[in-house]
Design a protein around this nucleic acid. Structure first.
Lengths: 185, 185
DNA sequence: CGCGTAATTGAAAAGTATCAACACTGGTGG
DNA sequence: CCACCAGTGTTGATACTTTTCAATTACGCG
């Protein structure tokens, strides 16, 4: 449920010793926006500690949560490659530390470090593979079944996420989520 | 609605002159399965001509269409990087020609051709950026609004895709799609 | 012409959203 | 110590949307 990228994070830590000036650590409290959709940024981010949510909001202000991101997951790379504005917003859930790498240095690392390059490719492949089946599954099964699945993947999910976030993650209203939880008891 | 990758295709054609033995052309008729989900493959594919659909099917046999793929889009790369089985199935809609590149050669090109490497990264970034907002939009708006959006993006969509495919793409039943179409008249 | 597939439509059932009221909690200030 | 408040969570009633099921028609092709 919370995607992580330990392999990527480990390698970031290695690179940081070689190029310390490339990596800036930023700290956030809970409920802070790191990236806002439809804006221009100039850095890649990689989560060092903590949990964030990646979401799109529509004009009514409703959040559609794509996924929860944990340690080692990077974001901001899509915009670098595509040249587009940011696709989604990133907001912290817990306290969060991120490594921030300017696009300039990111580009350098991609060109000159084959291991890094391959890890970036792999992390993007995993990102796609993670997102795709989620919507399909949620669509094919009832809310109850989706909750059961959540409980299996992350038994402590209720302690980490607010009810609202869970509802937005499942793509249903809070009311429907509550009814489904009642039926499960 | 139909994602394409002209830039990637152009470069594939260039590479093909340099390494002709790397690229095998395969031809398919309509309604043929090129990739089947949860299987192991050993090649990357890039669409030369024609249209395919990328979908996941659940145990009831229902297809959940992720996206329609057109010229220059590649698939089979996620499995190469992640080492997982195929995420989704790919089935042709029209007649299709694909370039097939073995993972071995793909790997070689990634390591030794920086332009190719960057195009692969870009195409993956676009793939993510294309898929993400779709489910969000479909969820936030009514079926009618989604159809109107389809008509704007692809005015001739009805000539290319069956009603069933369109319903599966929008994530609704055929019955609901038909009712929405009636209401629009 | 007959067959299978695709498309259409109606009626009932199931699922979900909307709206509104109310409970619980922790923190703040009188 | 209590009253108040904001944020979060809970619940009921109703309206609306979508699915399910079933029956029927239209179309392309051997």
């Amino acid at each position: 449920m919370i995607r992580t990228g330990p392999e990527f994070l480990t390698y970031i830590e290695v690179l940081r010793h070689k190029y310390p000036q490339y990596f800036i650590i930023e700290k956030y409290g809970s409920n802070e926006v790191i990236l806002s959709q439809q804006k221009r940024y100039h850095s890649l981010y990689c989560i060092k500690t903590g949990i964030t949510k990646c979401y799109l909001s529509d004009e009514n202000g409703k959040e559609f949560i794509q996924e929860f991101l944990g340690e080692g997951v990077n974001f901001g790379e899509l915009e670098f490659f595509s040249g587009h504005l940011s696709f989604c917003s990133i907001k912290t859930i817990t306290n969060v530390e991120v490594y921030k790498i300017s696009y300039q240095y990111y580009d350098f690392l991609l060109e000159n470090d084959a291991v890094f390059n391959r890890l970036v490719l792999k992390s993007m492949a995993l990102k796609i593979g993670f997102k795709a089946p989620r919507h399909s599954f949620q669509h094919s099964y009832s809310i109850e079944e989706n909750i059961i699945r959540l409980q299996k993947i992350a038994p402590n999910y209720a302690k980490i996420f607010s009810k609202n976030d869970i509802a937005n993650y499942l793509g249903v209203t809070l009311r429907s989520l509550n009814r489904a939880l009642l039926l499960l008891k």
